[in-house]
Each structure stands twice: as structure tokens, then as C-alpha cells.
Design a protein around this nucleic acid. Sequence first.
DNA 1: CGGTCGATTGATGGTGCTCAACTCGTGTGG
DNA 2: CCACACGAGTTGAGCACCATCAATCGACCG
Lengths: 231, 231
Amino acid sequence: MNCAECPVRDAAECHALHQQDPEAFAVLARARVTAPAASLILRAGESASRVFTLYEGWAFRFTLMSDGRRQILGFLLPGDMISLRGLFRRMTFSVQALSDVRLCAFDAEDFREAIKSSPLRERLVQRLILDAAAADAQVAVLGRRTALQRIVHLILDLDGRLKNRGLAGGDDDDMELPLRQNHIGDALGLSRVHVSRTLAVLRDRGAIALGRSGIVLNDRATLRGLAGEVF
Amino acid sequence: MNCAECPVRDAAECHALHQQDPEAFAVLARARVTAPAASLILRAGESASRVFTLYEGWAFRFTLMSDGRRQILGFLLPGDMISLRGLFRRMTFSVQALSDVRLCAFDAEDFREAIKSSPLRERLVQRLILDAAAADAQVAVLGRRTALQRIVHLILDLDGRLKNRGLAGGDDDDMELPLRQNHIGDALGLSRVHVSRTLAVLRDRGAIALGRSGIVLNDRATLRGLAGEVF
DNA sequence: CGGTCGATTGATGGTGCTCAACTCGTGTGG
DNA sequence: CCACACGAGTTGAGCACCATCAATCGACCG
């Protein structure tokens, strides 16, 4: 069982780790785990005993507010590491499967040992920095963007990440994102009703289509024009 | 010149690094630098040639949006590291002095060398994780909180951080935060006008006073009641 | 066939933005 | 010393954006 089996390309963490230090990576004990859609993969407050990379399917990180509302902190795509921070500290967020998922699971103790003297460690520091930068960017989006811009930004961001992994086609290909409007609202600080209305605007302008199981991108140029940012 | 001179107590990064590995830390070349209020300390896009810890005064991290608006990502207090991420990647944000500041400056190359085989490195990884978690928390605040709650949260957060460093007194002591309403708005995604109105509400309820040079906390119990979170 | 989940649409109202005028304190140059 | 500009804050009026509540609808499923 080898991570090279993952249908995930260059930019994905799982693959990148393997490239970085094939020997150290190869020696790690790992298991393949599956989890059904909507199941909890990790709970806030735990110190993770296993580290996961997402092999197939989508998931999301979230916290629950004291009033019971949910804030989604980010979406996890095939190739992403799920619980890197859990190696060093208790988790501050929970992770839930969005679709049925398959995971590579590494024993946390093994993993910590493996990175003590390995370029893997450098790679993981880079990943922590990228995570922090992504969270900063999300702060800017929530602080300064309208509902329309937030949604367009999210769609293009996900599309771009998928494209980096070879999981989405070129500019002319349609791409379906398996998100419920519920999730979009919880990620962007919007009500479900307003997400519905805003998506309707995008559909009426021809930028997207609303399929049975998610949003279909079919005019990225229009979306980029609406984003108000460089994409 | 030694970081132990800093008027900063246990929880501050500068001091904690020193405790973690006094020898490695003591050998680092360092210089004391001053910068006037409003001066730029670091620019987004640079790869930092020096690492700073904030010795005295306040600063903030920010990015500029394409429309020219500013999003403040966080405030930096005495004892905070300023450019840790700049050791490994180009900066994704700029840093500006809020007041006159004094900095400890370390050469980045020296610093990278020093942490290669030192418990300092472990400490810095912890710091990166805490930074990422703080950014996640800010996403939740901006996504789910009203203007009043955001402002109360910011005030209590800053007060708590200062208290951890011995830079603020107990619950009965007044504490003045040297923030312009401008900064509060840019940090919390609110207009300056609305910040003014919201602070007026807090003042009328007796939770704060508005001094000439900042906000004065004088009733933390009332503030905690308004925060809608555990503090 | 009833039940549930996700999405849509309408009506209504509140939170917070924008524009504008004004105050107050401070610094600056004639 | 005064006039003036300037930055920061305050206050009012009007409105845009988005939340909330409620009703409905289609798809899917046991």
C-alpha cells in the first residue's frame, strides 16, 4: 500500500511528502481507512493518535459556537493532510466528512519519530505556514467582501486547488463541486437563504449551473470578473 | 544586551525562547532597533533578512485589498515574534508600528542555523500552530459575531494577552488600549462610523471609557457578559 | 404514501454602510 | 498669536445588504 496510488498529483501534500523523502515516508506504518459521508473524523480537544491524509473524497474543518451554530474553517480536498497540528497540540477544530472518504492513516508516534531527522520536517513546517496564511486570507475575505464575492472566491479557490492536483480539467471543462448550500453558508458567514439567492444570481448571469449534487462551474471568466481579486 | 531585559513575562515568546534553550539563544547575534509610530516594519512579499521580536510598543499585521482597503490580521504586543514565517517563506502580510516600538532583531540566517538542532525549533513549531489556531478563531469571530460582540471580543482578547505577560493589572485595574477606532474597524471588518457608535453603546453601559489615547477597560464583568463566549 | 432533506421564494425587519456635517484637539506656518 | 489644516471622533439621515420567519416544492427513500 503506497501513497503513490493516490489519484492525487504534484501539489498534493501526500504526494509531496513522498517525493521529499521516499525512504522515511515509505517506512511509516499506514493503514487505509474509510468513513461515510457526514461522519466525524476528528473531534476538537483530542490530541490525535493518528495522522491522516485525505485520499479520496471531501471533508471540512469546523468549530461549534456557544450558540450551537457552526463555523466551517476550511474544506479539505484529496491530497490534503487532515491532522498535522494534532501531532503537536490538541486539535482546536473538528473534521467531518463531506462525502464518503478514504484516508491514509499514520500512527502519530511513528510520524513524530520519522520527522525528527528528515526533510519531511521542513516540508511540514512549510505546510503549517501555508495553513496560517490561508486562514489569514479567509479573515480578509470575511472582513471585506460581499456575499457574492465570498461565494465566487470560494468556488474559484476550490477549483484552483483541484486543478493543482489534476482533479479538475482546464478552463473549458465543467467542474462540479459537491457542496450543500448549508456548507457554503457556514463557511462564509452567510445564511442558507442568502446563499440560495446569491447562487441564483450567479446562475442567471450564466457563471454557474446548479446541478442535483452541487455547483457546476461553466464560465470561469465571468466568475473571475466578479471575484474582485486576482485569480 | 539580553532579551531578559524585556519588560515581558512568562508567556511572551521572547522570554519563552530564552528559557527553552538559553545557550542557543544567547549566542544569536542581535541588535536593538527602534521604529516610530506608523512606520512600516515589514512589507508583504519580502523574504525577511531579519527576525524581530517586539520588545516594547504595539504593532499590527495587515494586507491591502485590491480596492485599497486595509484588513488588519492581528495585533502584536510586547513579547510577540513578528516575522517567524518570514524565516521560511515570503511574507504574506505587512507589519506596521502602532506606537513607537523597540525591537530585538536577529539575523535570519543565524536564526535558521541556530534552530537546526535545538529545542528552539520545537518551540517555533508550537508558535506556528498557535498562530494558525488564532487565525481560525478570528475567522469564526468575523463569520458569526455582531459588531458589538466582535469589539468586546477584541478588547478582552488584548487585555488577556497583556495580562499573561504581566503588562496589565488584575480585574479591578483600568487598562488603556492605544487603538484608534480606525484600527478596530479594519481589524473587525466594520466601518469607522459603526465602531464609533458601538463603542458609544459600551460606554453608555459603563463597560468602557473612551480616553484621549485609547479605550479604557473599567468593567470586565460587563464585557464578559456581552462577549457571548467564555473569557 | 408520508417523511425528510435541500432548495427556493416572498415578506419583513435589523444591522451596519455611506454620505455628510460638525466638533474637538493638535500641530504648523505666517 | 492667530489662522488654518489636519486627523480623529461624533452624530444624523437614508439605504443596501443580509438575516429571519414562513410557506412551498421537488427529489429521494423507507
